[in-house]
Simulated assay, not measured.
Amino acid sequence: MTWTIFMLLRATPHWLGHSITERDSIAVDCLAQAGLNDHVSMRFYDAEAFSGTCSDVAVFETTDLAAYYFVIERLRNTPLFAKPYFDVIDIIPALENGHQAFQQAERA
């Protein structure tokens, strides 16, 4: 099963104090350190114009929760979370159409 994990983030003043070019460079370096790979992918969404709770959403996809866990362990040691440039507001793991997989398994 493919897991989708939504990580709700809030940018801190440390992050916002950098220029866009500096932010891009920091993000590239930190994500490289995290070791995203064939087992764990990530997309990034801006939400600040639509939410007072979070400014950004990182969406991870994986079929290997251990690989995801290791990526997050490495990522939390980068300035993105250690400085911190972002606060983690919530993490929501989900299965797309999980009910359908359950129904198929029950029929088998």
Rank of each mutant, 00 (worst) to 15 (best):
I89S: 15
A105R: 07
Q100W: 11
R23E: 06
F44T: 08
T2K: 12
F44K: 04
T2N: 07
R43P: 02
T63R: 11
P13Q: 12
V71W: 10
A58H: 03
T4Q: 10
Q104R: 14
T12F: 06
Y45N: 04
A58I: 02
P93V: 10
D24A: 13
T4G: 05
T53G: 10
V71G: 07
L80Y: 04
P93G: 09
D38L: 06
L65H: 10
E96H: 10
Q33G: 00
D29C: 01
P13H: 08
R10F: 07
A101P: 06
S55I: 03
C54T: 13
L75M: 14
I26W: 14
F50Q: 08
D90Y: 05
T78Y: 13
I20F: 15
Y85F: 15
H39R: 04
I5L: 10
C54L: 07
Q100R: 15
A94P: 08
A32M: 02
R76S: 02
R74L: 02
E96C: 03
L31V: 06
H18R: 10
E22Y: 06
T2S: 12
N97P: 01
R76E: 07
F70E: 09
H18C: 01
A108R: 08
D56Y: 07
A94I: 06
F81L: 13
A108H: 08
E96Q: 11
R76V: 01
I5C: 05
V57N: 06
Q33T: 04
F50D: 13
D90A: 15
E73Q: 08
D29G: 03
W3G: 00
A101F: 13
Y68L: 06
W15V: 00
Y68F: 14
H14Y: 14
H99W: 14
R107N: 05
K83W: 12
H14D: 12
D38M: 06
Q33A: 01
H18T: 00
I92C: 10
Y45D: 03
R23K: 04
A101L: 14
L65A: 11
D56T: 06
I89H: 12
P93F: 07
R43A: 09
S55R: 02
T2V: 10
P93W: 15
A101D: 13
D87C: 03
